[in-house]
Structures are given as C-alpha cells and as structure tokens.
Design a binder for these strands. Structure first.
Lengths: 136, 136
DNA sequence: AGAGGTTTGGTACTTTAGTATGACCTCTTT
DNA sequence: AAAGAGGTCATACTAAAGTACCAAACCTCT
C-alpha cells in the first residue's frame, strides 16, 4: 500500500517534469515538437505496460499464490498441510510418512482429519477442493 | 497471427492520425498544445495496457489449454481420457461409472490402463503427471 | 469377411485408503 | 498445575483402489 502511493507520487512528478520539458523544448526551438510528443507517447506507453503488469499479477493471476488465510480458516495445521502437499505430489501414505519421518499410521490420522476439514470423501476430492480454495 | 498484424496496422494508422491531428490543432490554435499532448499521452497509456494484457495472457498463462498432441502421443483413448477427467474431479471409480453409464469394473480397467500409460502407481500420481503434461 | 483396436464387464485377489478409538507426549495458555 | 491443541502411533476394521486374466461386443479399415 505504501509502495503503491510512493510509485504513483513519483509517476506524477515524472509526468509534470516531462510536460515542462516538452513545453520548454518547443518554445526554445531546441527540439522538434513532433519528437517531444513522440517521447511523451513512448514514455506513457511503457508506463501503461508497467502498471498493467503490476495489476495483472495481483488481479488476473490469483491462482499463483496460496491463500494462507483460507488455510487458517479451515483450521488446517502445519503438519496437515504438509500431508496435503504430499498428496498433491501423488505420494502414498507410506511415502508421505517416509518423507516426513513419521509412521504411516500418523499420516492416516492426518489425512483423515484433512478430509473432514475439507469436507471431502477421498484424497482426490480433497485435491480438487484445495485447488478451488487456492490452498494448493 | 493474421489478427495480430491487423491490430498493429490499425494501431499505427491511429497513431499517425493522432500526430497529424495534434500538429494541426496546435498550429491552427484550436487546441492548447498541452491538451493535445495530454490526449496523446492518455491514448498511448491505454495502448500500453492493452498490448500488455494481450501478451501476458499468451506468455505467462500457457497452462490454460490442454495438449491434445501429448494425449495422442501417450496413446490415451477418448474413454480413458474421460475417466482421467473424472479422477481429476475427485470422483470414485463407482461415481465415474455412474457418470459415464458403465460399470465400476469397466472404470477399473480404464484406470489401470491409464496408470500404466502415464507411468503412475496411483490415481493421485496420475493427476500430478497429467498436469505436468498439460493434459488436464 | 477378418484383423486390430476400443470398450465393456466379470471374477478373484492384493494392496492402499480411510474410519474409529484409545493412548501418550509436548507445548502453550490459563 | 490443569486444560487444550497438535502430533505421534497402534490396533482393528471397512471400503476403495488396483492388478491379472479372460471374454464378448463393437467399430473401423482393408
């Protein structure tokens, strides 16, 4: 938020400077008016690209980053989440257990809790729901 | 490809018109030069946004459409693919069977074939592999 | 018509997955 | 210190998932 305000402040400042410069250049005859206009056009063109890139990464690409708040809201613990990641990697309970250095029984407990928290009947359904929630 | 060329052509045409207009406006005194410059700036700003949006949707979002060639290359039949979709929806073999109006046995056969074709040991692993291949 | 691939379906079996319950340990909070 | 939450693990069970093998029906192409 603070950064956004700072960036916009600098942007406006830069624009004012550009306007003043172009006006001066045209009046003093140092620069052709077309070239001045072209410069401004190019600058604004890139400003448009820059701003769009920023906003696109936060508005139309919401699937990239995981929704940590949702994870909390669903009351999923760290360990349970690690198990969920294991499931998404296509691992069996046994393999997840080996990865996390715990027994298969423990993983089963975590999976069972996960399924009830995600309101799923199967691990594949849990994956689908987790993706819907941008949790994974 | 054709569309891209057309769009760029129209874009360049519009720019030339804008330049001519602004030059005329400034010389004839109908318009303040600052206003003309501002107009150009705004237009280019939006052009920047537009172009960026187009390119971003095709470059940083390559995961959207499925790779049909890969499906063929893996020798996955239509029916098997339908089963794969069912799996990705978190359905059980029984539910997939009901959805496709066949028995659970049939689904098991398809799943088994799918797993060997995708070189997976579990349906969850099949999902992960299928996503890697942009098949799903 | 016959070969070949796909789809369908069954039986029988093994392996994972998932549920239920109880127990113990370790922190953190009250 | 007691309560509560998370994590760990085990047993015993049921339910899915997956494998292997076989067989019939159905297309499609030659």
């Amino acid at each position: 938020m603070k950064r956004t305000i700072l960036i916009f402040g600098l942007l406006i400042l830069a624009l004012l400077l550009l306007f003043q410069f172009s006006k001066y250049a045209i009046i003093s005859g140092d620069l052709n008016s077309e070239i001045a206009i072209a410069l401004i056009a190019i600058v604004f063109f890139f400003i448009g690209i820059y701003i769009n890139k920023k906003s696109l990464h936060k508005q139309t690409n919401p699937s990239e980053d995981i929704d940590h708040k949702k994870i909390e809201a669903l009351d999923i613990s760290k360990r349970e989440y690690e198990v969920l990641v294991g499931i998404s990697e296509g691992l069996s309970n046994k393999e997840i257990g080996e990865k996390l250095f715990v027994s298969e029984s423990t993983i089963k407990t975590h999976v069972s809790n996960l399924l009830s928290k995600l309101n799923a009947k199967r691990r594949t359904q849990a994956l689908q729901i987790a993706k819907d929630f941008n949790i994974i």
